[in-house]
Every structure is written in structure tokens, then in C-alpha cells.
Design a protein around this nucleic acid. Structure first.
Lengths: 216, 216
DNA sequence: AGTATACATACCGACAGTCGGTATTATAAA
DNA sequence: TTTATAATACCGACTGTCGGTATGTATACT
């Protein structure tokens, strides 16, 4: 294939192709050959010209994944009409409602069967999601008096991990009834911290997403 | 090497060797050749005679790992001097104090960098640990009046995942101070369910285990 | 024109897994 | 007890596939 005048298009093509395959078949079970075949004429040389390893493609895919969440955060963070607690609630709501979430749920058979994704997600949550997103907002909430805790960092980590792992139907697969129960338990826990940040709207969207997977 | 009259010994040798290597170097970075080299004369044929794939060796290793927890459970489950809540507390205590835990902490550099282990552990927790171990005891606690919840299954899952993932220093690596904070948050959460099942003794053992890893 | 870039292609070593073969043990009939 | 037969334990060369590299070539930029 002739060389592309706009190489970024080739990079995006590779990332998008890998993105789809990684989510569908899992990172381990997607070979470079697989990616090449879905690239439409491009060869191995093209891939290794733009990426130095398969793992680097994974990182690019993960970046693409977290991009959406980061946008949501920024939008909420700068709003002046919400206090810390309200911002937290808004972030959870927006995250669940984002089209990326929907796409993820439709495309991915089971992240639980995609070990590297799970691990990377867990680490990104703790090393980036918490310090860059949730923690600053919790601290803001502490300052404005809407959130009370002695352990903002631990609380932030706890909430993120619980939502991203335990409440995530892609990871901890369960029936809709069980998911409902899990929501109730989590809601009760958060109320123990005076955090009324997940409501019936959150629940129904969660169930909606989960039910996508029940019919597959 | 001459054939062994007691083939189970060979199987155990393979499992134990793989066990050590998988924990030390990770499943992905342990090759069959690696295992063979630490087997003392046995060959690839021997391995594939007893196991049909590398993954099957992994399953055997995971079984060996959960064996210990299962024993602890059985010991506690049959005790007549404890109610449900007390049994729960005892199980957590015994689990942390078991020599297997200690060995794990000493030998394993980071389960977080061992994706398959993490995934398998998560799935085993939900599919076996909860229904076979924690849930029956919580239900016992509900019957004897020591535990109160509308959602025993969700609560069991929540506790197990939080302890096994978030509070696990092998997975969510953090400073001792952060681990202390996390303990406090989790303790507060459990108290919200009237579950006073982790105490200062649990904490100090947890910190002790975690500090093993700090000095590596 | 000359250089840097965007690819193509032939190739490499490592890997998991297979297969035909051999040596040892278990079984059981003579 | 001996001997024929079968089953098991193991060996090691081989295969296909994998991620990754080295090198060649055509196109775009300066």
C-alpha cells in the first residue's frame, strides 16, 4: 500500500482496529496478524513503524478508553453551580450515560476473560483515576463542607474500585436481581458516609446496561 | 529419567515447581522450558503427559492455592462455640495468619503484574469463595441473629472482593499509612452493617504482611 | 537532489503444543 | 513362576504460530 500523506490516520486506523479486536477477542487472543488482516492492505511493517510493541498498542487503546472519562471529569470539575458532593454524583451519572460506556457494553463479551484489561484498568484507577479525578473533588467537598471524612484518599479509592470492579457487570457478571441487591448494599454504604450520590436513576441506567449483556 | 512408580509424585513435582515460578515470575513470563529446567531431569513429554496444556497447570496451581483457605473455613464452620458473626471474624483472622499467606507475600513480587492470577482469583472469589464459604456463614449469622441484612449474597460478595482486592497489599500496592487508612474506612463500613469483625489485631497482622513487601 | 518518512517483506528466535518412539510397570493367562 | 500383552511414564525432535527485527523501497518533504 502506498504511503499515507497523513500518517496519523494510519495510527488511528491501527488503534481503532486493535481497540475493536482487543475488546472482542481479548488482548492475548488477538495476534498482530489478526490486526493486520483487519487493516485493509497494511502490513506488519506499518504497525511496527508506528508502535514499538504490541503492548504499546494496548496502551494507546487504554488511553483512548480513558479519554472519555477524563472529558467527563473536566466538564464537571469546572462547574460553579455544584459543591463537591454534587460533582461526585454528576460524574457517576455522566460516566454511566456516556456513549463510550454503551459501546463498551455492546462490544465486549467479558472483561473478566481479558486479564490484561482488568489489571491495567485496576492500576489506572488507583494511579490515575483516584489522584487526578475523584480525590480532588472529594477534597473540594471536604472544604465546602459537603463531604466529611478523615481519609479522603482511602475513601476515593474505595469508591472507585467498588464501582469499577464490583458494580461493573462486565467484570462481576451477575443476574439483574443480584445487581439490584449490590446497588442497594453500595447505596447503604455510601449513605454511611453521608454520600447520597447514587439514586434510582443511576440504578436504572446500570440495570439497562447490564441487561444488554443478559441478551447475548 | 526413569519412570516413576508413583506418578502422583511427578504431578506434584510439576505443580509445585510451576507454583513457585508462576508466583515469582508470573504466568505469562514462565515458559514450559522454565518449568522443565527446574524439574530435575524430567522432560516436556512428562509435563504434557500429565497436563494437557499450560493453562491446566495454572488451574492445578490455583487449586493448590485455594486449598488452604478451604481448610480454614471447614475448621471454623463446624465450631459450636461461635455464632455467625464470630465465625466470620475468625475466618478473616485465620486467613491472615495462615503460613500460606505469609509464603505468598514473601514469594510474590506483585500479583498486580500477574494478570491471569488476578482474574482467576477474582472469578474464584465470586464463583466459589462466596457461595461456598462466606455466604453460608452469613446466612447462619442471620438465623442466629448476629448478622442483619436483606442482601446476604451481595454483602458477602462485597466483603470478599474488598478484602481480597482492595485491602490486599499484593494487588493494590500502597504505603503502610495508606493501608492503615484503608483499614479504618473498611472498618467503618463494616460497622455500618453492625459487623465488628476486624480489629486492631487484624490491622497489625495486615501491616506486618504489607511491610514484608515494603522492604523488597 | 537529497533526506526523512511510511511502509513492505523476508526473516529470526521463542513459544506452546504434538507425535512417534522407548522403557518400565501392571495384569493375567499358562 | 513364567511369560505374553497391555497400559503407563516419559523422551526429544518436530511443527506452526507468535511477537519482533533487519533491510529494502517508494513516496513525500526541504
Amino acid at each position: 500500500m502506498a504511503r499515507n500523506k497523513h500518517p496519523q490516520e494510519t495510527v488511528n486506523l491501527i488503534i481503532n482496529t486493535a481497540y475493536r479486536l482487543f475488546l472482542q477477542k481479548g488482548y492475548d487472543h488477538t495476534s498482530i496478524q489478526d490486526i493486520i488482516q483487519h487493516l485493509g492492505g497494511l502490513s506488519k511493517g506499518a504497525i511496527y513503524h508506528h508502535f514499538k510493541s504490541k503492548e504499546e498498542i494496548l496502551f494507546a487503546v487504554m488511553d483512548k478508553l480513558s479519554e472519555g472519562s477524563y472529558q467527563i471529569l473536566l466538564n464537571v470539575k469546572n462547574r460553579k453551580d455544584l459543591n463537591g458532593k454534587e460533582k461526585l454524583k454528576q460524574i457517576f451519572k455522566d460516566s454511566l450515560n456516556s456513549p463510550i460506556q454503551e459501546e463498551l457494553f455492546v462490544v465486549t463479551p467479558s472483561i473478566g476473560k481479558n486479564p490484561i484489561f482488568l489489571t491495567t484498568m485496576l492500576q489506572e484507577t488507583v494511579k490515575e483515576g483516584v489522584p487526578e479525578c475523584v480525590l480532588p473533588i472529594i477534597e473540594e467537598g471536604i472544604k465546602d463542607g459537603s463531604i466529611h471524612t478523615q481519609y479522603p484518599n482511602a475513601l476515593a479509592e474505595f469508591i472507585m474500585i467498588t464501582v469499577n470492579i464490583w458494580l461493573n457487570p462486565m467484570i462481576c457478571e451477575c443476574t439483574l436481581q443480584q445487581l439490584y441487591d449490590k446497588f442497594k448494599v453500595f447505596q447503604q454504604i455510601l449513605l454511611g458516609f453521608d454520600l447520597d450520590i447514587i439514586d434510582e436513576e443511576f440504578l436504572s441506567r446500570l440495570l439497562e446496561l447490564a441487561s444488554i449483556r443478559q441478551n447475548m
